[in-house]
């Protein structure tokens, strides 16, 4: 059984068909990449999985359960974490606090306990911090731990956003263009991290990425989208050499 299985998903914005009868599935433990020209509907697929958008049609299964039964704020509880194409961090909080929000789904204490900072709250805070420190070590974020997001450079923010998603302890990680806007060195780091996330942490990764170098080096399978529909699916090499894919990219370039 696949970890994530999407069948015949369709979503329209007014007249624009953003996702068109799309089916694909992501297996546990793999890195699955979605590529496609701008406006192909890649981010929209993520927003469907996050339940920000209601699909017109289609079935969404996660780990055997119906994803459509969940509200947007319940998706995290299933173990699905994500980053955003435009970086959506909590700007007026520190890096540490941002990562700690990633732990929110593990909150067990209630309002009254927190008002009095009951022993249980303290105990859990320790556990949250332990988990977050692991992420900080993994992503080399130590120098920024207590810095406000508002003052951080773009590249660091991208890493913090990845960290916040990891801090939630997900089973499936959705990365929307993890390397866009990053320097060559930063992209290289991102590549090691994605590799380690899959191999060491055993987290399944579904990512959208334009950088074909990164895509072919980390992903097991690639899905090429155009106008919301599947163009090709297969290993990175297969997809890159697919005539329809080449056509779509050249066509998009020529238009």
């Amino acid at each position: 059984m696949s970890l994530l299985e999407i069948r015949n998903a369709t979503l329209k914005f007014g007249g624009v068909v953003a996702v068109n009868d799309l089916s694909f599935s992501v297996e546990e433990g793999e890195v699955y990449a979605i590529v496609g020209p701008n406006g192909a509907g890649k981010s929209t697929v993520f927003n469907l999985i996050s339940r920000f958008y209601e699909p017109f049609a289609g079935s969404f299964q996660f780990d055997g359960g119906n994803l459509l039964d969940c509200k947007a704020d319940e998706v995290a509880d299933l173990g699905i974490a994500r980053t955003f194409q435009n970086i959506e961090l909590f700007d007026h909080a520190t890096v540490l606090q941002n990562l700690l929000v990633g732990r929110h789904r593990h909150r067990k204490s209630n309002l009254v306990e927190e008002l009095f900072f009951a022993p249980r709250v303290r105990r859990e805070e320790h556990a949250h911090r332990e988990a977050v420190e692991e992420v900080i070590d993994f992503l080399d974020l130590q120098p920024y731990r207590d810095k406000m997001i508002a003052g951080l450079p773009y590249g660091v923010r991208k890493v913090v956003e990845l960290g916040r998603a990891l801090a939630s302890g997900p089973r499936l990680l959705l990365l929307d263009e993890p390397a866009s806007g990053l320097s060559v060195e930063e992209t290289q780091d991102m590549r090691w991290w994605i590799d380690d996330i899959r191999k060491q942490m055993g987290i399944t990764v579904l990512m959208v990425e334009h950088d074909m170098g990164l895509v072919s080096s980390v992903s097991d399978r690639v899905l090429a989208l155009a106008d919301g529909a599947k163009l090709a699916e297969g290993t990175p090499a297969e997809v890159q050499s697919n005539p329809a894919v080449i056509e779509a990219y050249l066509g998009a370039g020529a238009a």
Binding site: F52, E74, V75, R82, F84, F90, Q97, L100, E114, V121
Partner: peptide, 21 residues
């Protein structure tokens, strides 16, 4: 505590706060 951080999360980005549960 978690609730105070959730407040700040709602203040700064409702979308990503939602995605964090």
């Amino acid at each position: 505590s978690p609730l105070g951080r959730a407040f700040a999360a709602v203040r700064d980005s409702e979308v990503s706060a939602t995605a964090m549960g």
